[in-house]
């Protein structure tokens, strides 16, 4: 058995894998936040609660209706995305003309409501979700549980697919155009309000999808998204919201940095992302991939 700088490789690669998985969630969530902010000018504080709703939807589908993980992977984001449609149509739509801060406050209030209701119904202790792909493989330098490897690959595919859809398709071009100048795009006969609704639903669905992926790894609990969304805000500040690929890279990169810190100096692992944020603000206030508006 060899050692790297006094750290057994099992521990090092184990933590790196964990970091990569956390990074996958950061990437998917910050991607959704960036897409929503681009078109709606709302920082969606409900994002963490919607991630939690995704995990809960999967758990309820399994325990109440017996619907397996693979079907929940498709169904849960659609269900949560539909609640997103309602939120956009009934609430967010009324505040677009106001300062951005009001969207932040409104979605913060919504997050309190959603998390409070879930805590009231199911308590704050976690519910286990059975691992859909049990087992794993010993790679020599580390043990890789199949499910975790699958999560990393699946989230990478989802992120890249989102990048492709926004940057390389016609629909994505409409979206980018509407982000720049909604009035002009409307003049070309494109239904921008409907596009806004669908964009919000898409971002929310992405958060829910991350929640479904997280369900077998973490326990499904009402508070699973509360702290996560705060970390994702820091990720968004670090990356800047100007670029889709930037969000993906920043998310995965920060997950890895967090994993490495867990190996090197565990007490700092909770804090390291915020320290990185402070450093980025010093050097490049607009964020690594951001543009100053």
């Amino acid at each position: 058995m060899f050692e790297l700088i006094g750290i057994p490789p099992q521990a090092l690669f184990g933590q790196l894998l964990l970091g990569l998985i956390n990074g996958a969630f950061y990437a998917m969530l910050s991607l959704g936040l960036a897409v929503i902010f681009g078109l709606l000018n709302v920082i969606n504080f409900t994002h963490g609660a919607q991630y939690m709703m995704g995990a809960f939807a999967a758990w309820l589908l399994l325990t109440v209706l017996g619907i397996p993980f693979w079907a929940a992977l498709v169904l849960a984001p659609i269900i949560v995305g539909f609640t997103g449609v309602l939120i956009e149509r009934l609430l967010l739509r009324r505040i677009y003309h106001l300062d951005h801060l009001y969207g932040f406050l409104l979605t913060f209030g919504l997050a309190l409501i959603i998390e409070g209701v879930f805590r009231w119904k199911w308590g704050s202790s976690g519910q286990p979700y059975d691992n859909p792909i049990p087992g794993g493989v010993n790679l020599g330098f580390m043990f890789l549980p199949y499910y975790r490897g699958w999560v990393v690959i699946a989230s990478l595919v989802i992120c890249l697919a989102t990048w492709y859809a926004i940057e390389r398709t016609r629909l994505g071009a409409y979206l980018r155009a509407a982000t720049e100048n909604p009035t002009l795009v409307r003049a070309f006969g494109i239904n921008v309000p409907r596009m806004i609704t669908l964009t919000y639903a898409f971002g929310v669905g992405l958060a829910a999808l991350a929640g479904v992926l997280a369900a077998p790894i973490q326990q499904v609990s009402a508070l699973m998204g509360t702290n996560l969304v705060l970390v994702v805000f820091a990720v968004v500040v670090i990356g800047g919201m100007g670029s889709i690929m930037g969000s993906i890279l920043t998310g995965f990169g920060l997950g890895l940095i967090e994993g490495l810190t867990k190996v090197a100096y565990p007490p700092a692992s909770n804090i390291v992302i915020f320290v990185v944020m402070a450093l980025v603000l010093l050097v490049k206030p607009a964020g690594l991939f951001g543009r100053t508006k």
Binding site: L91, R94, I95, Y102, L105, L106, F108, G109, L110, A111, L112, I113, I114, E115, G116, V117, R119, W120
Partner: peptide, 13 residues
């Protein structure tokens, strides 16, 4: 918390 959330939403709207 739920009531605080409702107040937030009501005030903003």
């Amino acid at each position: 918390l739920v009531i605080q959330g409702v107040i937030f939403v009501a005030i903003v709207l």
